[in-house]
Nucleic acid binder design. Structure first.
Lengths: 138, 138
DNA sequence: TCCTACGATAGACATTGTCTAAGTCAAGTA
DNA sequence: TACTTGACTTAGACAATGTCTATCGTAGGA
């Protein structure tokens, strides 16, 4: 992800302090943040950044395919910078922690033609639900 | 689902006109309604029913396991009365139509131990994304 | 029939996200 | 470097969805 800024510049993105900060927040291993969490961390680095700009920038990153939206629960959408390696998600029902996981096989192969109802299938999102070790121990 | 009211009464549910109406709305084949849609249809049958009551009743039905919550997109939660037959969902990316589908195999078997990170896995929700015939034709 | 606890109600409030109008500035040009 | 322009940012209003509270009503048992 370190070359994200280069890729964006290459696509004609106007580089602003705000966009740089949002990209920096998403970089690193603290993944699956909500928009509000991204905003909070961005404010630490650039106090005057507005909420709308964070939402706009996240939306643009999603459109560009650099970040994925994840909606594992009824709460806020989360943003996953791991957009370049296909994966699914494992969610703790207690604390909401999300882990990226890589299942075997192709999930599409489990859906027979008779269950496709004429749809053109483009993909499948799998959310494994469970309890994480910390919550299980508590 | 026609015996839903009986089951609920058997569980000590106090039967009120409002709860009966909500259950009736969910009954039938017009499935996957949002809370707001349930409320709109309930108002047709019982004009003075309040939004809070619909939300409360839906929440109770979910808790009782009679109805499933489905969050396939960033929009409102949808309520699926087909709670007694395990199934997954097929969603049209254009119009948002949802179909219940029954994939083969057990989705949990695709997640190897090395990808479980110590979680106790309870289940997997699969959302197949695609384009429905109507939207593809348009 | 009467009581009472459980359920319903209206509406305030909370959370998450979108939109708008006006001001600001990155980057190209000279 | 200074100028110009349109893309970007901002604050805050607004919207959609959902939750909570105080009060009133009523289902169902005594």
């Amino acid at each position: 992800m370190s070359d994200l800024l280069e890729r964006l510049r290459g696509r004609g993105w106007r580089m602003t302090a705000q966009r740089r900060v949002v990209a920096e927040v998403l970089d690193g291993d603290h993944v699956h943040l909500t928009a509000d969490e991204v905003h909070a961390r961005a404010v630490d680095k650039l106090p005057e950044i507005s909420r709308a700009t964070v939402y706009n920038t996240l939306g643009e990153l999603v459109t560009l395919g650099e970040v994925l939206e994840v909606s594992t629960d009824r709460r806020a959408k989360r943003y996953d910078p791991n957009a370049h390696r296909p994966h699914q998600h494992l969610v703790c029902a207690q604390c909401g922690t999300i882990r990226d996981v890589h299942p075997t096989g192709n999930p599409l192969s489990s859906l027979p033609d008779s269950e496709r109802f004429g749809f053109t299938i483009e993909g499948a999102d799998v959310t494994y639900r469970g309890t994480c070790p910390s919550c299980a121990g508590a």
